Simulated scan of single mutants.
Amino acid sequence: MRDPWNAFMPYPDADVGHAAIGPLSGFRLAVKDLFDVAGYPTAAGNAAVLAASGIKTSTAPLVQTLLDAGACFVGKTNTDELAYSLIGGNIHFGMPINPRDPQLIPGGSSSGSAVAVAAGLADIGLGTDTSGSIRLPAAVNGLIGWRPTHGSLDNRALRPLAPSFDVPGFMTKSLEPMATVMSAVGMPAANDRPSSILISEDIFATIDDTVADEMIASLRSAAMPIRRTDAIASFSLADLALAFITILQREAWESNKTLFERSPEAVASDIAARLLSGSRLDDDEVREASGIRKLFSAEIDRLLRENVVVVLPTLAMSPPTRDAEPERFAAFRSACIKLLCLSGLSGCPQLAFPIINCAGNVSLSLFGARGADRMLMNMALRLKAE
């Protein structure tokens, strides 16, 4: 396959079979290079991991489910190193090119899967989402991005980053294929509609007023009550982001400690700095962050228990250019984590999709109770149909 976008890893082709008939027949599947696929190595965006990988002899169960449903595997895709970034860069294998705007970052860490779908090289992009690695590249590339309820999909033979946040997820160009994917991976159907849409003022205060107004105006077609609240929780977004990052860094260090201690020179300096930050956290910091997470999750459960759906912008600011300074990348990551961390801390699903007739690179997200994935899809289909 010709790949001018650097979406795919440059592996020799191996035969990966798929069912001749199934709900995903005719769909091309791109798989993030964190999942094992028989006949291929798994590099996780790192040269040392690639060297130690060997050729896998079995396929991750979730990937096999997609193949058994008829999806045709077209390759393993590029990822940020160790899946530990939101930018899309990789010093070992290069940064994929954003087909929507080649001047902008592709977003990460599921960068290659997003770019493959956006460039028309695949119909389904399988990735992972820990701190936004499905939702952010989906938003940057104008795609649908689904972060499922935590624990709802099989994550065996998937290299971890932060297991209590890691979720396999998907990207497609439109909602209908994503709805088909949801069915194929066993998400239960939902006939109920949200009782109301909730807009949290503290969340929308993080973005430009004009964009916020356009987003809220797009909800009117849903023909259901819109409620407003001052804040989504008793904690500030900044406090929630700090708790999230603290837990993430500790778990990321634990997942990659052996690699780093054996080959510290094999890890990019920015990734290494984040890993080392996790190694230096004391137990009290992590315990405090875990306490915030527990309280926040309980508050969200109470908030969403009556089929309420929270609407929020997917990104807190416009994505930077691919040649921006590291400080710009850091500012972008920090701003976006304040919104992206909500699903991670709560374990709740989130569905991101571009807004039609909205100026700029704008993505809206629906955030619902655990297990409400299909209800979010039904609401998104209703919004897009109007």
Rank of each mutant, 00 (worst) to 15 (best):
H18P: 11
H18F: 13
A19I: 09
A19P: 01
A20W: 12
A20D: 12
I21Y: 06
I21W: 06
I21A: 15
G22D: 08
P23W: 07
L24K: 03
L24Q: 00
L24A: 08
S25I: 01
G26V: 09
G26H: 00
G26L: 07
G26W: 01
F27Q: 15
F27K: 11
R28S: 14
R28V: 10
R28D: 13
R28L: 09
A30L: 01
A30M: 05
V31W: 03
K32R: 02
D33W: 02
D33Q: 10
D33C: 02
L34F: 15
F35S: 02
V37H: 08
V37P: 05
V37K: 07
V37G: 07
A38C: 12
G39K: 09
Y40C: 00
Y40S: 05
Y40V: 07
Y40Q: 03
Y40A: 10
P41N: 10
P41W: 06
P41F: 06
T42Q: 01
T42D: 03
T42F: 07
A43F: 08
A43N: 09
A44I: 06
A44R: 08
A44L: 10
G45K: 04
G45T: 06
G45M: 00
G45N: 01
N46L: 11
N46V: 05
N46T: 10
A47V: 12
